[in-house]
Write a protein that binds this DNA or RNA. Sequence first.
DNA 1: CCGCTGGTCCAAAGCGCTTTGGGGGCCGGG
DNA 2: CCCGGCCCCCAAAGCGCTTTGGACCAGCGG
Lengths: 341, 341
Amino acid sequence: MNLKELSDLLGLSTTTVSRALGGYPEVGAETRRRVRAAAAEHGYRPNRRAAALATGRSMAIGHVIPTNQGNEMVNPVFADFIAGAGEVYAQAGYDMTMSVVSDGDEAMAYRQLAMDRGVDGMIVHGPREHDSRLDLLRETGTPFVVHGRFPGSEPDYDFVDVDNARAFRRATDLLLDLGHRRIGLLNGPVHMDFARRRLDGFVSAHDARGLSVDRASIRHSEMSEQAGYDAARRLLAAPRPPTAFVVSSLIMALGGRRAVQDGGLTVGRDVSIVTHDDMLSYLTNGGDVPIFTATRSSVRAAGRRCAEILLARVAAPDDGPMQEVWKSDLVLGASTGPAPD
Amino acid sequence: MNLKELSDLLGLSTTTVSRALGGYPEVGAETRRRVRAAAAEHGYRPNRRAAALATGRSMAIGHVIPTNQGNEMVNPVFADFIAGAGEVYAQAGYDMTMSVVSDGDEAMAYRQLAMDRGVDGMIVHGPREHDSRLDLLRETGTPFVVHGRFPGSEPDYDFVDVDNARAFRRATDLLLDLGHRRIGLLNGPVHMDFARRRLDGFVSAHDARGLSVDRASIRHSEMSEQAGYDAARRLLAAPRPPTAFVVSSLIMALGGRRAVQDGGLTVGRDVSIVTHDDMLSYLTNGGDVPIFTATRSSVRAAGRRCAEILLARVAAPDDGPMQEVWKSDLVLGASTGPAPD
DNA sequence: CCGCTGGTCCAAAGCGCTTTGGGGGCCGGG
DNA sequence: CCCGGCCCCCAAAGCGCTTTGGACCAGCGG
């Protein structure tokens, strides 16, 4: 059933039917009623592709996820993010178009989605150093919003980010207050912007107290359980092992905890752990009492907010930049305690 | 730059240019070369939406993910699955269109994607009891492939599934062989087809030895860490607690392990655990020696295969059903040992 | 020399929708 | 009585691409 058929059926022009359905004022009340009824009865729904072609708006938002054998982007965090964003899209009648590409083809994927596939906007995930995507997107003129921030100069684009530096500074401060002096940092890949900012926070907390940080106790890796385990394990094997860890994700922290336990030590007594917690739905940080002391910020909420901003941007391309930096909570859990003597 | 402009530039008709780019034989070699060169130079890429309208094929595959406050579908397993499927789509020039909807609107989302958004096919996730989606999709005539199987009669549709019953029967057999007689089952939601089959495998292993299973030791829940913890905790608090667990996902198993440890017990000695492992990229089951003894099957590979089958189905709608039941491996890890006396 | 067959290329007709630019009634004011 | 306005509605022109149905021009066999 298409517009033409429905119109013929009603003895009306396609113009009128289209307008009646679209809610335009140029159509009589009674006519509109009839049209709506007929559409419902015959299950008519306008063909989106055709509408997209006619209007130039495709009612879809693009996400591209790079993937490369155990890559850190196709990850639980990402899943929760798109769950949040997807809710907003669905409510606004938008689709979500995802392109999964291997790392090298990423730029091409952005170009393709923005150009030929005709999404109306894009979300940029995981900004990092030397990231060509910013220029790329500006070049194509596609509206976009960044989850996170590109490193470097003052951003003039839309973004939603967590105050990573502050979060990790506070986390580190807590451990320092508890008397810990050898603290390991289990961070994400160093080229990722968020990891860099967290590192800065970690370092600045030390600096503020005139303490030096041992570069060897800083590990950058993929944010998997195994990587967390390996990194923690290695640090714990050092002659003067850390008495505490600051960790970049709950999953890594699980690995860290496993390493601690494997060493016959107890988390929260022998070794303290503070982790960042993205509040993933299927991997919560315990029940009433959090397992881990954690800096906390919902990535799903971030997904929602990014989507909202993007849709607003699509509607008003020339408004000033919409930028949000979220403060994360620092919640106390069972994984931290005073430094052992 | 659109087709018309490019054609004018070349002094050719749009027909010829379109065909040259499409690789059709009706165009001279030299002309084709010129066209290709010009297209590359000016960065011309055909507008997908227009092409979709013209051909009737939209070059997109639909996935719908239901979501409902801490739902089990927007989960890490799902992330890995679409990573696998996405690779295949990308290579074949397909897009992935995702619709995130709250549980109630699921049927509508399928209908919409299949009808107006014009995807060429759909993947069905998480088949369950009383699932209306099968009829729905048949009704719309959209090609689809199921990840898993619908409960009930002999399937006549395309699907890729793991032999869940066999996997859990073997897992249970292993524990029984080790002398365990009180085994807890930490399973997914009971209405999910895979959970039902796993339960069957668990029970049949007991039946085959003339052992009865204590229904109280069977827990069905969401497959989160916390749910795993809670369920295991409760079972361990019973007067005659289980000496072993069969668990439906690695994430749940992590919760289970936490519960065991919280009880002052040691995994692999006091309490054995066998879990299903979906081989998620960021949550691997340890390094050389698996942490958990596990039934193992890559969900990412399943995603790839589902996508391949779906694309084949789209190309040949009338071929016989393509159905695969994968045998999962049973790998020995450090989480199992003989039953304590 | 002619009709035929291939090889190239083109004009034009869609695909299904939105939207511009009117076109008839009908009413009220001059 | 006439004309301008207002309401409703319609015809038709795209949106950018694919694809059908030729057209034109060799080249070739008869």
